[in-house]
Nucleic acid binder design. Structure first.
Length: 370
DNA sequence: GAGCCTTTGAAGGAA
DNA sequence: TTCCTTCAAAGGCTC
């Protein structure tokens, strides 16, 4: 009996050690997963920040366009009443309103939008599952239906698509999801780049057409007249700064007055709501680059300051990574020490039980002898 | 060279 | 929420 228990002892220990190893492995896996989730979370936060900034910009743009439309409305009515008035030189307000209204009316009436010159640098929209299917099957379908035209082949493919079992379709939906991910990633880092094409936001072509028409009118007008009031001040007050910022970050490269409007709104001249939103946006930027304030007056200084901050931030990140690594090493060392201690304890226990067994055995033999 | 034809499906805006 | 529109792809055809 005692010899059996002696044989079982190391097996039990081996199992316990095995369990420990398992837990250790599991612990490491979980730690890795947490790290991955944190990284993903960081990415998503960045994406959210960008989206917020974009929304803020669009809000300002919208209020700008509505302001222009509202301001120009009464002028138009009075103009239409005075039929005998002599023809005037270009009136930016009138031209703007007629262009914008015409465009908006056109859009509402037809419900269709004219095709836009899309920025060739803009990411392509993802192809849906059916288009993926067409791409892979079209050649074969054309070979099978050589006498049929292109549209007919598409029609055949659509019929085939409908008849396709869901498991087969799933393959193409997966492909679509991958394309979609690619598109989202590209869009998150995409800022309108080409001044030739302007900044054309997907699904925002009408808005941009209005803006383009407006700014064409404004720029034309500036060559002919000196406008008094708001727009004049808009175009002259901070031209140099706007020119710099527009080349640095503006998607609307030709729009000084428009840029100026955005710029002023973003610095808090707009409504309280906008101001509040702007503070949030600026805070987001601070978060992105390390949480410091920027006090530079000029753009070049600000760029230097930003670069310095990014370097600092990289250093911080680097040291953070090092700290994490060191902590991990410490954990591992601690775990190894624990293991060793446990091993020693187990060995001690084994020795004790061995001694106990020996005592018991000797005890029984003595008794036998007696 | 631009736009149309055909199809499905995703996405976004308007009502 | 529903409806409508646009845009992705393919290549030939028309203006």
């Amino acid at each position: 009996m005692s010899s059996k228990s002696r044989q079982k002892q190391p097996t039990f220990k081996a199992v316990a050690a095995n369990d420990d190893l398992k837990y250790k492995r599991k612990y490491k896996e979980l730690k890795k997963k947490i790290r991955e989730m944190e990284e993903e979370n960081e990415k998503l936060s960045l994406k959210l920040t960008r989206a917020k900034k974009n929304i803020q910009r669009l809000k300002i743009e919208r209020s700008f366009l509505f302001d222009r439309l509202e301001q120009s409305q009464p002028t138009n009515e009075s103009e239409s009443d005075t039929t005998s008035s002599p023809p005037r030189a270009i009136d930016s307000e009138e031209d703007l309103s007629s262009s914008a209204e015409e465009l908006l009316e056109d859009h509402h009436r037809t419900g269709k939008r004219k095709k836009q010159n899309r920025d060739p640098n803009a990411p392509k929209r993802p192809r849906n599952a059916f288009l993926m299917y067409c791409k892979s099957q079209r050649d074969q379908a054309r070979e099978e239906n050589q006498n049929k035209g292109f549209q007919d082949v598409t029609r055949i493919l659509s019929q085939k698509w409908k008849d396709l079992p869901n498991e087969e379709k799933q393959k193409y939906y997966d492909m679509y999801n991958k394309e979609k991910e690619r598109y989202e990633i590209e869009m998150s880092s995409y800022v309108g780049t080409s001044s030739q094409f302007g900044y054309i936001q997907p699904e925002e072509s009408t808005r941009n057409e209005v803006i383009t028409r407006f700014d064409n009118n404004v720029s034309n007008h500036h060559h002919h007249n000196d406008i008094s009031g708001e727009r004049s001040s808009l175009t002259t007050a901070e031209t140099s700064r706007v020119a710099t910022t527009s080349t640095l970050e503006s998607p609307y490269n030709n729009n000084h007055s428009y840029e100026q409007y955005i710029d002023e709104n973003e610095r808090g001249i707009g409504s309280e709501y906008e101001e509040e939103e702007f503070v949030e946006t600026k805070d987001d930027v601070k978060l992105d680059i390390g949480g410091d304030d920027y006090e530079s007056d000029t753009d070049s200084e600000m760029v230097d300051e930003l670069a310095a901050d990014i370097n600092d931030n990289n250093k911080r990140r680097h040291s953070k990574a090092e700290r994490e690594e060191a902590m991990e090493c410490e954990d591992e060392v601690r775990m190894e020490e624990d293991d060793e201690n446990e091993k020693k304890d187990n060995e001690g226990e084994a020795a004790d039980s061995k001694e106990e067994n020996l005592v018991n055995e000797t005890g029984t033999s003595e008794n036998d002898e007696i």
